[in-house]
């Protein structure tokens, strides 16, 4: 009887483990083709998060298509790697398997890259968002000047709010999440100082429920224009969708598809040029030591305006002027 119990429980546990592994967010490249470049990326959230991780995965697949598909560039990824030691294990694993380029797509992975990269001098490592290469010859660093698109979204929000109250739902006050919001607040204040901006932080990049509650609170406080950063802001968009007349301003990826009736504009991180350059450098034998910053000026940052939203001409003109001003240095996005 006890053996039967043990067997049943063992079978159940194994079947559960199988399901978890199947859904555990790791996809390896197929067997190595001679001559194919291999890139692996470790991400804190899912490749379809409509935000940070999706921006990198979209760029990688675009570069893969340009190069001729999987026969020329093989991609592998590990997603939902919020736990840094797990991510460090995955980064080391990919490097051990001989991947040409290993990307740690999260500012929390810096110390892991610093620890692992010296053990694999023939592997190129890239990580962000940061500009620190730790003085290592095989590490690239990258970040986004998120405040630039934040400023433009702030200009739009200031000119499109009807209540005069704008809400910001942030995750954690670090990295590009903070700089985006700093730029947004600055954009609002430089455009119309009478518009009130309220901010809240959930303390988590992934807590959708907390972000939902924050957005509900901003709306209850009178905000009719919202923005926020991180993969958890989908919760804010979801609740905004149920509130008539609330507008959303996105960042990191084009969030229009989430709610076409309320997403006015999105700042898009376009990592493709950076990836092309890192790949070219790798093939030329330059393994690292540089950092990249996405900006409007180098086309790493782009604004996607939702054609389904009737943006007033004055607001659109102001937004386009802000982009040009930031590009030519006449406007400083950070306060």
């Amino acid at each position: 009887m006890r053996m039967m119990r043990f067997a049943v429980v063992a079978v159940l546990v194994l079947s559960m483990a199988g399901v978890v592994m199947a859904g555990g967010g790791r996809e390896a490249a197929p067997a190595v083709d001679d001559g194919a470049l291999r890139i692996a990326v470790v991400m804190p959230s899912a490749t379809n998060d409509m935000a940070f991780s999706q921006s990198m995965w979209t760029a990688l697949t675009a570069v893969q298509a340009e190069m001729g598909g999987p026969s020329a560039l093989q991609l592998s990824y590990s997603e939902n790697m919020f736990v840094v030691p797990d991510a460090a294990g995955a980064l080391r694993d990919y490097a051990s398997q001989g991947y040409d380029i290993v990307i740690g797509h999260g500012s929390q992975y810096g110390s892991s890259i610093q620890d692992i990269a010296p053990d694999f001098p023939d592997t190129v490592f890239a990580w962000g968002t940061d500009v620190n290469t730790f003085g290592l010859d095989n590490v690239y660093a990258y970040t986004a000047a998120a405040e630039q698109g934040g400023y433009v979204n702030g200009v739009l929000a200031a000119l499109m709010t009807r209540s005069g109250q704008v809400g910001v739902t942030g995750p954690v006050e670090v990295g590009d999440a903070k700089t985006y919001i700093d730029g947004f607040v600055n954009g609002v204040r430089q455009t119309d100082s009478a518009v009130r901006v309220s901010q809240s932080w959930t303390g988590s990049f992934s807590d959708v429920a907390a972000m939902t509650a924050a957005a509900s609170t901003h709306i209850a406080n009178g905000a009719d224009a919202l923005t926020g950063s991180s993969q958890s802001v989908v919760g804010s968009v979801g609740v905004a969708r149920e509130s008539d007349g609330v507008l959303w301003f996105g960042t990191q990826a084009d969030q229009t598809d989430l709610a076409p009736e309320l997403v006015v504009a999105s700042q898009i991180y376009d990592w493709t040029d950076m990836l092309r350059e890192i790949i070219a450098n790798r093939q030329a034998g330059r393994m690292g030591g540089e950092s990249y910053i996405l900006t409007f000026a180098n086309d790493g940052l782009k604004m996607a305006f939702n054609p389904a939203i009737d943006i007033p001409a004055e607001a659109m003109e102001a937004a386009l002027a802000a982009i040009e001003g930031i590009k030519n240095g006449q406007i400083r996005a950070m306060p």
């Binding site: 429920a209 509650a213 993969q231 919760g235 609740v239 969708r241």
Partner: peptide, 17 residues
């Protein structure tokens, strides 16, 4: 959570609730 509060689904949407 998914069809009343957040109106969407995302990985680990309960966040330990």
């Amino acid at each position: 959570i998914s069809i009343s509060i957040s109106n969407l689904f995302q990985d680990n949407i309960t966040a330990g609730q």
